[in-house]
Design a protein around this nucleic acid. Structure first.
Lengths: 207, 207
DNA sequence: GTCTATAGAATGATAGAC
DNA sequence: GTCTATCATTCTATAGAC
């Protein structure tokens, strides 16, 4: 088997994506050249075009894959339960999904500007779909009288911004463990929908 | 006075900064060329270098100005009062300052990666300084027993992420007015530090 | 599938006329 | 202070050998 020249598509494909994600997260899409990505993989720039028709498609694929993984993982982790339980499940899922994917999160939120209009629309649609998951929980909790919410859309955006913001500072070797962070943010979210820690069962007891 | 050629430094300087801010917010620093900025101002690319030694300095100046304005405005709007009053003042200040500056906020948070290391450190220091304002309020409120907080640093980052996130979706002609948004977010923050709307005076009455 | 080589366009920054 | 012109570099993407 050849080493410096030969066929490695099954290996090289994922490596191109990993290298692109790492470099784009670090420097930004427009600041990263195809030559840099190729060098990171250990191939020449021209060979990249066996794996993507152009630079724009590479970015879009990274972002679309991230959003699809997010939606599929959310689908798989859905639970039954009252709105408070569902809200807790959502918050914990969101943190657990995003923390190990800081680079992909970074790219998916920062490089929207660099998507071609058609690609932008597709990604935005997926994002809206994900936000709908949370908003549905909040609406149901509000309808049942469990949650104290002024505006479910605002609350949705506020919670997601708060949770996703963790990715901007979290480090594996930081002061707090992922479990501690998860607990703290769940407490913040719980309180923000008007559920006091002292009476977490209000709706369930009342009914 | 000449029109197409001549001296216009007092006018052109700010226009260069405005054009750069607008274009960088829209497309990203690395994706915007000096020629594009010049065209937006209505001058030739070479003339830009009367106003900045290089592209990097232009970005740094935009971000540094934004952070200095933020800190000065915060300084000017500081109020006396108990922690709850100070927290409300901070939240309302943050929203009022940021909403009319969506582009500058965007640039200041998204283009950190494109700053040279020295410039990055300076901006980060200013940001840390601003976060300290909020954390100080939370710590004081916690010390007095007014606020129910698990970790003041986490709570600081969560609140700022939540509030700054407004800039990512707010539109002047949107469904909600700035005043409504401000009210909703203040309610969210108030609840997140454990102050129920029904008993906003707990500390003051207890003492 | 990867390489070398290159086309064709764009970039940041500078020099010198006015 | 702005212009024109340009240098030297870099970029995306393609062509063709192996």
């Amino acid at each position: 088997m050849g080493r410096k020249t030969g066929s490695h598509s099954e290996i090289t494909g994922p490596r191109v994506r990993e290298a692109a994600l790492r470099l784009i997260a670090q420097h930004g899409f427009a600041a990263v050249s195809m030559r840099q990505i190729a060098a990171e993989v250990g191939i020449q720039a021209g060979a990249l075009y066996n794996y993507t028709p152009d630079k724009q498609s590479l970015l879009f694929d990274l972002m679309q894959s991230h959003m699809h993984e997010l939606l599929e993982a959310r689908e798989a982790s859905r639970t039954r339960g009252d709105p408070l339980e569902q809200l807790e499940a959502f918050v914990r899922f969101h943190i657990r999904f995003h923390l190990p994917r800081q680079r992909a999160v970074f790219v998916s939120y920062m490089e929207l500007r660099n998507l071609a209009p058609d690609n932008f629309s597709k990604i935005e649609q997926l994002r809206t779909c994900y936000e709908g998951e949370l908003q549905g929980i909040l609406d149901e909790g509000h309808r049942l009288g469990d949650f104290e919410i002024s505006d479910s859309k605002i609350t949705t955006l506020a919670i997601i911004a708060m949770l996703t913001g963790i990715c901007n500072w979290y480090r594996e070797d930081g002061r707090l463990s992922a479990a501690e962070i998860e607990a703290d943010y769940w407490t913040l979210v719980r309180k923000s929908v008007g559920i006091d820690a002292a009476e977490p069962m209000r709706h369930r007891r009342a009914v």
